[in-house]
Design a binder for these strands. Structure first.
Lengths: 227, 227
DNA sequence: GGCTGTCAGTCTACGCCGTAGACCGCGCGA
DNA sequence: TCGCGCGGTCTACGGCGTAGACTGACAGCC
């Protein structure tokens, strides 16, 4: 093993990201990672305690890549920018993103993204409780959309076609059949814009009313309520 | 191995569902399933070709459990009922649901659910293209919300607390800190209703305009919301 | 020089995993 | 009676994550 750059936590995380994106999560193994690093599988354990820790660091690093919206721009633009950032991340790191989305543990780097989202929603006039609820709403939209896109790419070929089309022949699905041409006309950008538009319209409408769904128990006499 | 009920595809799928929900996806193995069935691991292969096929059938069976909304009720109620059905499914089959959501292959049983959703959205006055786009929007909302809930339960204890709270101590997150009490007041039902409300308001507003984002070709510079 | 400790990386081995392929006993039609 | 297919079993292979012992290079100190 001549003149190989020394193993570092950073190099491991970067290489793991690459392997994950190129090979997919289920083909990612310690042995494969070590091979890519030109190193014995056990060498990695000098720097990170186990496979789970490696994956966690990969996710942290990926989320840390997310650009934050300009706090000076209007709140809708900021929410939109966050969604776009998530979608771009999914395109850049598909393997990582598929791990990230249903990931059960909290990610440190996500805090700043959340903070930006909260601030935008508050500026949009949402009551505190609704701003708190808005974050998963926005995140889930962007992430879910991106995951659908990734699944579609994976499916190939004929990217525009409806994945269920082949199954349609049996049953009785008039609406689905009617909408098939719409779905075949793949325009992810327009689709994404549609969902974002619906979300923002909904949030704006909600902010307009000034109301909030009453919390379960009136235990707490409601803190800072007015914007 | 005395007087054991005969192995059938159905029994395998049912037992696999149970094991998956109780042990989680990463502890689900052919050997564990076979043990639960009281049978040699290889016996299962007489009925289903491999592990992936078993998981696929488990997902099909789970999705087939989804109740369909009453086609006579108003469209908003129907969309809401679909979301609730997905959430209930997640509660009933957490292990399965975690597999279901980012699942890349199409599920036959989902066709009827999609059909119901399309019909509701069309009845809500959405243009065909938007009805097609609305389905993933609605599904992703319900599924994403349910996944968040599952992750929260898994995390335990102190279910109401913000998972990031412990990480907050370091940085500067005024909005997050301000909303912390809101987030600690866990009321999933109200949270779910909020998101649904936002979604339905957005969809209704969108239907009201009668407009639809133009499909790719005529290079309309931007949708109603430039990102 | 030798002695010691530390650090980076390697080697071996264990117990899991999915599943290919040979095998076995039984019931049934001929 | 025979043969055969069907349901189930056994053995084995290659790959997995990682514990634990090991090796060599180097630093500090006498």
């Amino acid at each position: 093993m001549p003149d190989r750059p020394p193993l570092t936590r950073d190099r491991i995380v970067r290489e793991a990201t690459r392997v994950l994106d190129e090979a997919g999560a289920d083909r990612f193994s310690m042995r494969r990672l070590a091979l890519a690093l030109g190193v014995d599988p056990m060498a990695v354990y000098r720097h990170l305690p186990n496979k789970a820790a490696i994956l966690h660091e990969v996710l942290e690093a990926a989320v840390a890549e997310l650009p934050l919206p300009d706090p000076g721009s209007p709140w809708q633009e900021r929410v939109g920018a966050l969604c776009v950032a998530y979608r771009d991340l999914a395109h850049r790191h598909p393997g990582v993103f598929r791990l990230l989305y249903p990931y059960p543990r909290p990610i440190r780097a996500e805090l700043v993204v959340r903070e930006a989202c909260f601030a935008a929603l508050r500026d949009g006039g949402l009551a505190p409780a609704d701003a708190a609820r808005g974050w998963p709403l926005v995140l889930n939209y962007a992430a879910g959309f991106a995951l659908d896109e990734l699944a579609g790419w994976e499916r190939l070929p004929d990217p525009g076609s409806d994945p269920h089309a082949a199954l349609l022949t049996g049953g009785d699905f008039p609406e689905t059949r009617r909408l098939a041409p719409e779905m075949a006309r793949a325009d992810p950008a327009a689709d994404f814009a549609f969902g974002l538009d619906v979300l923002l319209r909904g949030l704006a409408a909600r902010a307009g009313t000034g109301e909030s769904v009453a919390p379960a128990a009136p235990a707490q006499p409601e803190g800072p309520n007015g914007a």
